[in-house]
Write a protein that binds this DNA or RNA. Structure first.
Ligand code: FES
Ligand code: FES
Lengths: 141, 141
DNA sequence: AGATACTTGACTATTTTAGTCAGGTTTATA
DNA sequence: TATAAACCTGACTAAAATAGTCAAGTATCT
């Protein structure tokens, strides 16, 4: 199992934004340069973040993006949800009555993967953007 | 992030094997039928499990596979390790001094992903094959 | 007017996954 | 000892997912 770039970049970009989010909006160009992420790719990512109201956009010269909530209220789970970085451990469909490989009952490992999924999601629910910014500032002292 | 079929199948197959691992070796054909996993694919998986000494093979007619250790001593982490289902959250190479996107220092999220990786691996270190078999038997009563 | 920066949607190369396929070798047992 | 069951190995491949790029806009500040 691995984390995709989209998810990783979304968090990198938001940590960057949160750190420079004082008065003025932060342009994607700046984030792109600081974090080494393609501008075009960032645009895709921020489009999704905006639709889920995690950031707000400011158009025109001197424009950019601003956080739409307090950093404390933005959890990792919200970010991942916005960019479709979902944790998927089971093979069977959630709603379907059928288990793995067409069995009428859930497969022998179904519950294990459900536990795993919860275990991972708990981590994402606890961590906020504020935590990440703080961690980063401490390490820099 | 998602779990791959290889990892999922490896665990399904081992749980199956552990449950029927009384006296005689269990053939892949039986596992294939019971779990609905392609025989050819199972062979790939068991080849790896054998190399890591998680199972032992018995060749010839009436052959099959047997657990090479007690179910209690086989942890999920051993299984995943054997079939190369690794948890990879960071983008940077482990040994390289360079961080994400060629930075000389680790990127702003590196520590977060390290924490996440540990969080997930802890889950895998705790769960043993025995736990899984028991869970399954209880649910069947 | 011109530059900056957001907006959108389509397109594509690469990589990974999830297998299949073909051709073995070993061994119990009838 | 023939035969069938079952392990063993490596190469191959279709499909999906990923990680972007590219093009053509629109809005707004100076
Ligand atoms: S993972 Fe849900 S039935 Fe197998
Ligand atoms: S994940 Fe290690 S430097 Fe970015």
């Amino acid at each position: 199992m691995k984390l995709t770039s989209k998810g990783r970049y979304a968090v990198m970009a938001l940590v960057d934004l949160a750190r420079f989010n004082n008065i003025n909006p932060v342009s994607l160009r700046d984030i792109s340069l600081r974090q080494g992420i393609s501008l075009d790719y960032l645009e895709q990512i921020f489009s999704k973040l905006r639709k889920k109201e995690i950031v707000q956009s400011v158009r025109g010269t001197q424009g950019g993006y601003v956080l739409n909530k307090k950093a404390k209220e933005i959890k990792l789970t919200n970010i991942f949800d916005a960019v479709d970085e979902k944790v998927k451990t089971v093979q069977c469909k959630k709603d379907s009555k059928k288990g793995c490989n067409g069995k009428t009952t859930k497969c022998v490992t179904h519950n294990l993967w459900d536990e795993l999924e919860n275990h991972i999601n708990n981590f994402f629910k606890e961590k906020s953007l504020e935590d990440l910014v703080k961690d980063n500032q401490e390490r820099r002292i």
